[in-house]
């Protein structure tokens, strides 16, 4: 099934690209969040949902959706599908490639729309914008409070790790490789090198030469990965608040483990599954409660750079 409304896309529109699989309950808030931010169009790849996600999106006036029954894994975890759609519909646009549980915050995002940022990036000749993934979690059991459709997920998952991220540089693609956060601290203490990557470059002024290499962690050409300053200064950056750890997580982990469609034989989901059977509480007394982007700026997780 295809619902193609890309004909409505205007030359200056900002477009969200996303892959989904059975995310029906998350969709209403996701769409609202990004519409309020000023996103003009949504392009989805649906990987064989059977919970009504597809039909729901097909009913949205500003969204297009493509469906595939093919393997997520052989499509390099969805990256191939997205690259295809990006090159087709993203060219010349500011594109934001996010999962439905990723919510962008950027400097001044409470007072300025996304267009203010992209205009500024345009004026500064900056083609890509970094937004590190920030795992958010509730206090108490992950499954204690059920997530209601349309609800702000961060009413439940309001907490995050503020200062345990490790960085190294990936010389092959010139990107930074960031790990850490609650997953590294709880699920990966025995094999920290396997902790998931938190570096993301989701906002890109797309060009036909561009391509995402692995999820949104890095791109080609390499210049797009140089979202960090090497001379001591700070470039502007944001965060992707990650609403993964809600009550929906247990079921998701189980399903994904069964499908075995994730990176490195889904070792990540194996680790989650094991941990979830014990005591799935990511909160600790040093957890930070989310307030706003300024707090993230002060904590050094993101930066205004020279945007003022």
């Amino acid at each position: 099934m295809v619902s193609n409304r890309t004909g409505q896309i205007e030359p200056c529109d900002i477009i969200v690209f996303s892959t989904i699989r059975n995310e029906r309950v998350r969709l209403p808030y996701f769409l609202k969040y990004y519409r309020d931010m000023g996103v003009n169009h949504f392009v989805f790849v649906d990987n064989d949902s059977d919970d009504g996600s597809r039909e729901y999106i097909a009913g949205q006036p500003d969204a297009s959706i493509w469906t595939t029954k093919h393997s997520y894994k052989t499509a390099r975890f969805g990256t191939d599908w997205l690259n295809w759609l990006l090159s087709r519909y993203g060219r010349g646009h500011w594109t934001l490639t996010v999962d439905v549980d990723e919510f962008l915050v950027f400097p001044f995002s409470d007072t300025r729309p996304l267009r203010a940022l992209t205009d500024w990036l345009d004026a500064s000749s900056i083609p890509s914008f970094s937004a590190m993934l920030l795992d958010m979690y509730p206090k108490g059991r992950i499954d204690a409070v059920p997530y209601e459709e349309g609800q702000d997920p961060f009413e439940i998952a309001a907490w995050f790790d503020s200062g345990n991220y490790t960085i190294s540089k990936n010389n092959r693609y010139a990107n930074l490789w960031i790990q850490g956060g609650p997953r590294a601290r709880t699920f990966f203490t025995q094999n920290p090198e396997r902790a998931p990557a938190m570096n993301k470059i989701p906002l890109v002024k797309w060009d036909r030469h561009y391509t995402y290499v692995s999820s949104t962690h890095m791109l080609l050409p390499r210049i797009l990965n140089k979202v960090y300053d090497v001379g001591g200064g700070e470039k502007a950056s944001g965060c992707l608040l990650h609403a993964k750890f809600l009550d929906t997580f247990g079921a998701k982990a189980k399903e994904e483990l069964k499908r075995g469609q994730h990176y490195a034989n889904s070792h990540e989901y194996k680790a989650y599954h094991d941990a979830m059977r014990q005591d799935p509480d990511l909160w600790c007394k040093w957890s930070e409660k989310y307030i706003n982007w300024r707090q993230l700026e002060i904590l050094g997780l993101m930066s205004k750079g020279n945007w003022a």
Partner: peptide, 17 residues
């Protein structure tokens, strides 16, 4: 902030050589 940055901070958009 853009030229000097915050001393001792290593993050996604500040990674000095």
């Amino acid at each position: 902030r853009r030229t000097l940055g915050r001393a001792g901070l290593y993050m996604q958009s500040r990674y000095p050589v």
